[in-house]
């Protein structure tokens, strides 16, 4: 409906009687058509598009890889949490019979999977061997090392291992118990540090991506300045002119996301061989975790959102700034 000329009907949809269903259908047909048209535009200016898609892809690869790294380290640290072993240090001057009776009692304990006794003599011999002090230790008048009982809990989670240790430490002949899970807490700390680093790097990179996409769209707006002026002169709204540029942004996102996915997959495939040879040495069941479907979809969604918002920021600023000049 016209503002100045009452009664002038000039919209394509209102001149004909069109049903709601058909109009809804046409709405989507139009959007698909424009999306395909924008795809064609990208195809026609390949150098600029490829550069932008490349930057977007590589920029998304880094956070995605770091995310995978964190995920895999997490898997490793989870598997090690299952390896908590308790060392019970026996008091000075306790007789061997007392120790072996405790050994028997503990072997019968419900919560304990295995008990190993390392006598002071064994410990000293082992120490002499690994430390390299060897003959120097002969000068010691008596053995300073205690007897040790190594306990492998049935339930090897960190918490129950800690409880078990507290209980066993109360035994009369036990000096103190030690649960070697400090390094696990440290690993956890490192993982969470890594995760924060990933977040920061991701935010920085994504900011850069936003600027790059915005700039590409800006250049393409500038190169179409004359065309945009003409469109404004014949009555196109900013929204109408914006649409193809927004679609370009979406396409950048789609292709950039796919590129990042391909790079990550290639990298995993490359590393897989190396990792298999390492893990087989450790007899570990570790295998590299790839991107899950949900992660792939979020990667794509993120890429598309970046493309769309990058172009939106640019389009908002630059299209309204173009004013047509004269007939």
């Amino acid at each position: 409906m016209s503002i100045l000329f009452s009664g002038r009907v000039s919209s394509g949809a209102t001149t004909r009687k069109v049903g709601v269903g058909r109009r809804f259908f046409m709405f989507w047909v139009n959007h698909v058509r424009q999306a395909l048209f924008s795809l064609g535009e990208l195809w026609r200016t390949p150098s600029a598009s490829i550069l932008t898609i490349g930057v977007l892809g590589v920029s998304l690869t880094l956070p995605a890889t770091l995310h995978l790294l964190v995920k895999n380290v997490q898997q490793v640290s989870d598997s090690f949490t299952q390896a908590a072993e308790i060392s019970l240090f026996i008091r000075e001057g306790v007789s061997d019979t007392q120790i072996s009776s405790l050994h028997k009692i503990l072997q019968a304990d419900q919560d304990i999977a295995r008990v190993t006794h390392i006598s002071k003599q064994q410990a000293l011999a082992e120490f002499a061997q690994v430390s390299g002090f060897g003959s120097a230790l002969n000068y010691l008048t008596d053995n300073p090392l205690p007897d040790v009982l190594l306990i492998l809990p049935k339930n090897t989670s960190a918490d129950s291992a800690r409880q078990l240790m507290a209980r066993l430490s109360k035994e009369r002949i036990v000096e103190f118990g030690k649960l070697d899970i400090d390094w696990l807490t440290r690993l956890d700390a490192i993982v969470s540090l890594l995760r924060q680093a990933v977040l920061i790097i991701a935010v920085l990179l994504l900011g850069a991506v936003l600027l790059i996409i915005g700039n590409t769209i800006r250049l393409s707006i500038m190169s179409k300045k004359d065309e945009i002026e003409v469109m404004k002169l014949v009555g196109a709204t900013d929204a109408f002119i914006q649409r193809p540029f927004l679609y370009s942004g979406i396409w950048y996102g789609v292709f950039g996301g796919l590129l990042a996915f391909l790079i990550v997959e290639t990298m995993l495939w490359w590393l897989q061989g190396a990792i298999v040879s390492v893990t087989s040495l450790y007899e570990s069941e570790f295998h590299l975790m790839a991107l899950s479907m949900a992660e792939f979809l979020s990667l794509m969604l993120l890429a598309i959102l970046l493309g769309l918002s990058g172009s939106y920021l640019s389009v908002r600023r630059h299209i309204s700034a173009i004013e047509p000049t004269g007939p």
């Binding site: 503002i3 002026e229 009555g235």
Partner: peptide
């Protein structure tokens, strides 16, 4: 924001064509 709608009511022939 309403300028485009006004222009739709006015057919303009430009001195320098202004074609795409």
């Amino acid at each position: 924001p309403l300028i485009p709608y006004v222009r739709r009511d006015i057919g303009i022939i430009f001195q320098n064509h202004r074609l795409l």
